[in-house]
Every structure is written in structure tokens, then in C-alpha cells.
Design a protein around this nucleic acid. Structure first.
Lengths: 207, 207
DNA sequence: CATTTAATTAATAGGTCTATTAAATATGGA
DNA sequence: TCCATATTTAATAGACCTATTAATTAAATG
């Protein structure tokens, strides 16, 4: 049994498809275009991945996990104050979204195309989400009871962080165009917003 | 000159196309499907609107304006405090997004498909945006100088409001699925978030 | 009523898309 | 070297899509 298992072309297809799916979405990306981009025969896409749907699902699942699995970094935070923990969480989440600015749009769009895909993936994440919750829940409770933080559910707090970080990178292309920002100016805005998000969330939960 | 000008079919096409474009986006909606949905011949779409692109552009421009033209209600706010003005702005914007929850996604997606469309529309909005700015800018300045609000640019404040409101309705379909929310529970979440957004923004700019 | 114009349909050209199949080429092991 | 297997390509079926054209039906007008 000689296993050739040359992964290069398979990987090239995955990488190219990932880029195009992220740029243009499922519906506006064709296997023909993926092949043309690579410079290979279009049938090769189907040789390795059988269907476009299957290729997309592999990529989508990977991106979905990538986005939710380590959505928050909650390690080495033990000796910090709650404020500093939260600041650290907001900033690392911000940086993660900054590195993957198109994943949220991919997920939102795919959900309206095929809700079952997300339903399928959610089960695999529930453990992670639950763990994340437990980790911060007691901290928040202590702060609220001490009167340092206004009453707020952990889920609302987390939703605030995710919302504000994600929407920056969702809206920036459009907002940048409306405000006539070039790439350099966008970079400045992003850095200013990073600080602003920390201030907004931290101030926003004060009692 | 006998002008028939029977607008019913034209309107039916516009309404059906609008619904489908909002649901599935430009790329995954075909003129064939629009016609099938209506129950008319597919050529009729092209008779009235010539091209799919043209039909989409008409709808997109309308939705774009609808979303940005009256993005904030800033009338009859004269005798209010800054806090109450802001509360009112956040809530009316929230309600507007709630009524048009799919427009942001349409705009974001269309921008990555065809950035020039947004570039074309921005000029027509700049007057509106500028007026909006002037109206709140001095108010904010007064609050900051009085020490009641931390230093923040008006643009960041507005971006905070738009971001938090839009992202709720962008993310709710996915988040609802992950958290297994039915429609009734979603409604409860939406109402709770409406209050939370006001608290977040108002607290978030305290000095 | 006859005629002109508008609205609608049937038919189709021409293109692209996904997926399959068979043939050609490359690769590794005996 | 020769063979078996893996990879790649060429060709194509079959579906669907956009847009156009010509023909048909409906509506309005004199």
C-alpha cells in the first residue's frame, strides 16, 4: 500500500478556497474560479473534495471553531483584578477579530443560507462556552455584590464585548468608504477604537 | 399620450425582489426565482428593470438611504438633558434597526461585492451626516468641559451606538441558535438588550 | 369598432456552473 | 524496467442563469 498522500495540492485548494469564500461568500465563488486562481484543472477541486458544498463545509467548520473555541483568553489571569482581567479579555478578543476580520460575516451569511450547519456545530462548542462562563461568573458576582459593578448578567457583558469588537471590522469597510479613510487612517482608527472599547465596556458596567 | 402606468406589477416585483435580496443576498437570488415567487414570466422582470443588477441597485439605494438618512432622530430634543437626548437617540435607533434587521448585512455584503456603489451613495449623504454632527457636537463639548462626560469624540460615541445596535440583529440569528432560543425568548432578549444598550452607552461615557 | 400602445408570455441564444467520466500523465515500488 | 496506483486533464452532460426577441394578449383611445 503505497500512500502517496501528497498534501500540497489539497492544501493549495483549501487555502485558495478559504480566501475566496471569505472575500466573496459561498454563492459568488465558483469552483471554476478557485481552479483558475490556482492555475489547475477545475475537476481537481472535485477530485479532492467531491462537492463545492463539502469543500465549503470543511472550511466553514474550521473557521467557526477558530472563532469560538478560543474566543476569550482566560489563562494566567489569576492574580489580576477583575478590571484588568476584563481589559485583557477585551484586548485579546479585539486582536483575534482583527486577525480574522471576515469570519463573522462568513458565519452570519452562512447561517442565513443554511441554519442547520450552525446547529450542527453548536453542540461541539457548548462545553467550551460553559467552561468560559463558570470561569468569569463568580468573579462578576463578587464585583456586583461589592457594589463595584452594576447588576448585569455575564451573558450581556460577553455579548457587549463580542458585539463591539466584531462590528468594528464588519462596518469598517463601509464606514471607511463613507468617511473617505485610506488604509493608514483606518489603522489609526482601529488602534483608537481598541482603547475606546476597553473604556466603553469597563465604564459601562460601573455601578 | 396614453400613459397606462399601472404600477402594480412593477411594485410587486420590487417588493418580492427586496424580500429575496434581503433574505438571500444578490448572488443567491435569481430573476427566475423572483418570477417564480410572483407567479409571472421571468422576462417580465427584465421588461420592467432591464437587468438584475439594475433592479438590485434600485432596491439597494432605497434601503441604504432608509438606513442612513434618518439614522438618528434629533428632533424635539431641545429641552432635554444630554443624557435624555442620548437615551432617546439610542432607543429610536435601536427601534429602527429592529424594524430593518437585515439592511446592515445587505450593505456590508454589497460593499464587498461592489465598493463603488457605496462610494457613489456616500456623497448624497454627507450633508445629512454633517448636520447630524453639528447638532450633537456642541452638546458633547459642553458635557466634557463640565466634567460630566469623559473625553470622547462624537464620532466614537456615534460609532458605539450604531455598533452595539446593529450587531445585536446581525448576531442574534446565530447566537439564538447557539443558545437554543425560540422566537419568544429572542423577543425577551431583544427587549433586555434595548435597556442594556442605553446603560452601556450612558455609563460608558461617564468621566 | 378599429387601432395603437402596453403588458405578458414563449422560446431561445449564449453563457457559466457543478459534477462526472474517461483518458493521459506522473510517481513509487518490485 | 514495468506495473499499479495516484494525480491531473480534457471533454462533456445537464442544469440553471441572464437577457433578448418575437409573438400573444390586454388595455386604452379615437
Amino acid at each position: 500500500m503505497e500512500v502517496k498522500n501528497n498534501p500540497t495540492m489539497e492544501i493549495v485548494i483549501l487555502e485558495t478556497a478559504e480566501r475566496l469564500f471569505l472575500e466573496k461568500g459561498f454563492g459568488m465563488t465558483s469552483t471554476t474560479e478557485i481552479a483558475k486562481e490556482i492555475g489547475c484543472n477545475q475537476a481537481l477541486i472535485h477530485y479532492y473534495f467531491r462537492t463545492k458544498e463539502n469543500l465549503f463545509n470543511i472550511i466553514f467548520e474550521k473557521k467557526f471553531r477558530q472563532f469560538f473555541q478560543n474566543i476569550f483568553v482566560v489563562e494566567n489571569l489569576d492574580q489580576m483584578t477583575f478590571q484588568d482581567k476584563l481589559k485583557h479579555i477585551i484586548e485579546t478578543h479585539f486582536d483575534m477579530v482583527r486577525e480574522n476580520p471576515r469570519i463573522p460575516l462568513l458565519i452570519v451569511n452562512e447561517f442565513s443560507r443554511n441554519p442547520e450547519m450552525v446547529a450542527t456545530l453548536k453542540e461541539k462548542l457548548q462545553g467550551v462556552v460553559a467552561m468560559l462562563f463558570e470561569n468569569l461568573k463568580t468573579d462578576l458576582q463578587v464585583e456586583i455584590e461589592a457594589g463595584r459593578v452594576r447588576p448585569i448578567t455575564l451573558i450581556d457583558l460577553i455579548f457587549n464585548i463580542i458585539s463591539i469588537n466584531i462590528s468594528l471590522f464588519l462596518l469598517l469597510p463601509v464606514a471607511g468608504e463613507i468617511m473617505s479613510l485610506d488604509e493608514k487612517q483606518k489603522e489609526i482608527v482601529i488602534n483608537r477604537r481598541r482603547d475606546e472599547h476597553v473604556k466603553l465596556i469597563l465604564n459601562g458596567i460601573r455601578s
